[in-house]
Amino acid sequence: MKFSFKNDYSEGCHPNILQALLQYNIDQQAGYGEDEYSLKAKALIKEKINNQNSEIFLISGGTQANLIVISSILKPYQCVISASTGHILNNETGAIEATGHKVLSIETEDGKLRPSDITPILENHRNIPHQVMPKLVYISNSTELGTIYKKQELEELSTFCKQNNLYLFMDGARLGHGLTSEISDLTLENVASLTDVFYLGGTKNGALIGEAVIINNPVLQEDFAFNVKQKGALLAKGRLLGIQFLELMKDNLYFDLAKHANQQAMKIKNAMKKKGVEFLSDTYTNQIFPILHRDLIAVLSEHFEFYIWKKTDDQFSAIRLITSWNTGDEAVDRFIEIIERELY
């Protein structure tokens, strides 16, 4: 069987989570997120972000989280700004547009948004009331290209959004990987203080399912629970999410798993760099995009699964490799062995 580098959710979940689900399986608990595990998990998250005033909602998946957050925040005539690589643009089947909100796209080389990228959008949408009103800036950390926001970048973006009456929403499907990157100077507490809303992704970092939506702006907290329920995201057995996030948050398991995934990706990246391989983007998370000759891609495809991300010319293409919390040394060493053999 081929080892998959296609994504970071091929495996089920970390054994601690499976054990906890089994251990507490027959306990009788309140429903709809009022169980003791969900309440403890939320309290632990508030402690880690150092904000007791934030409100936390446990949601089953990333697309669902994006859909509920954005459709709840925006009025019918308001829209969201996203990098062209944003998940809400390319991988959510038009879910945001289906709620009646336009997504304004900005081309960026590294998947990140900066104030200078957003300014032209604001300048071109002043024909009130004939155009949609930009109101929400959507970013991802790490981005869909594996890049991350440094602290100064997020501070500048946060300040810009406040000055222009925009909300800032961070998709945190891979936030653990972004924060534990070897070049990151951003903390979870920083993220909480600089965004209106963000979420901690569990699905791509050791959980069976689940994202923890964290609303920091008090204005946006009001009635949010109604939107969660109306859109089918309020699980009767909310304990299933609460148990998972309680396990992930205690003893820093969440960050240890993300750090492991990053380290495994960097082993592959560094080995490739020594052989002169170039990359589509310079990443330090669990996503890497090496540019390889089609013959080498064919050889690697005999042993591993991965996506061919972008054709760069007639002979070369960038592939995407993603490591996970469970990516072991055997698969990584085997991949490196083939690279070193073929690129002699």
Rank of each mutant, 00 (worst) to 15 (best):
S281I: 11
L157I: 01
S181I: 13
L58E: 05
N127Q: 06
E55C: 00
L89R: 15
S72A: 11
A173T: 08
T312S: 04
G100R: 12
T159Y: 08
N51G: 03
G201P: 05
I17A: 10
K311M: 10
K311T: 09
L246W: 06
D256M: 04
Y32F: 13
E305R: 15
L240E: 14
W325D: 02
G111I: 09
S84E: 04
G94M: 02
D295E: 11
S301Q: 12
A207T: 14
D27M: 03
Y199K: 05
L58K: 07
L113Q: 10
K2W: 01
L188A: 07
N66L: 06
K151S: 04
F245C: 06
N127I: 15
E123K: 15
E337F: 01
G202M: 11
G178S: 07
D329V: 00
A233V: 02
N25S: 09
G62R: 12
L44C: 07
A207S: 10
V219Q: 13
T143I: 09
N227L: 05
G201Y: 12
E340F: 08
E211L: 01
L168H: 11
R114N: 02
C79N: 14
E340S: 06
G202P: 00
K311I: 05
T187W: 13
E340I: 00
Y77K: 04
N124F: 11
T195G: 04
P76N: 07
V191R: 03
N227Y: 00
L154C: 09
F224G: 01
K269S: 02
T283C: 05
L188P: 12
F306Q: 08
I215G: 02
A236S: 14
I17P: 14
P290V: 08
G172M: 05
S158C: 03
F289W: 02
E189V: 10
L194P: 07
E305Y: 14
F224M: 12
T159F: 04
G210M: 04
Y138H: 13
T93K: 00
L122M: 09
N270Y: 10
I214P: 01
L321S: 05
E107Q: 11
L300G: 13
E342P: 08
T93C: 05
R239V: 12
L257D: 03
L145R: 13
F160N: 01
L67Y: 15
Q287N: 07
P115I: 08
I26W: 08
M1A: 08
R320V: 09
C13T: 08
D329S: 03
R239H: 15
E109P: 07
E97C: 04
K231Q: 09
K162C: 06
S317E: 08
N124A: 03
G86K: 05
Y9V: 00
M1V: 15
L186C: 12
N91A: 09
L208P: 00
H293F: 03
L136F: 09
G61A: 15
I214G: 06
V132I: 03
S184A: 08
A207H: 12
K151H: 13
I56D: 04
I214W: 03
K102C: 02
Q28W: 12
V69W: 11
L22N: 15
L157C: 09
N124G: 01
T283N: 08
I214L: 03
N91G: 09
L179T: 13
E155H: 04
K48L: 06
I288R: 03
S140D: 08
N141T: 06
E182Y: 09
Q315D: 05
Y138T: 01
D185V: 13
M1D: 10
K102P: 06
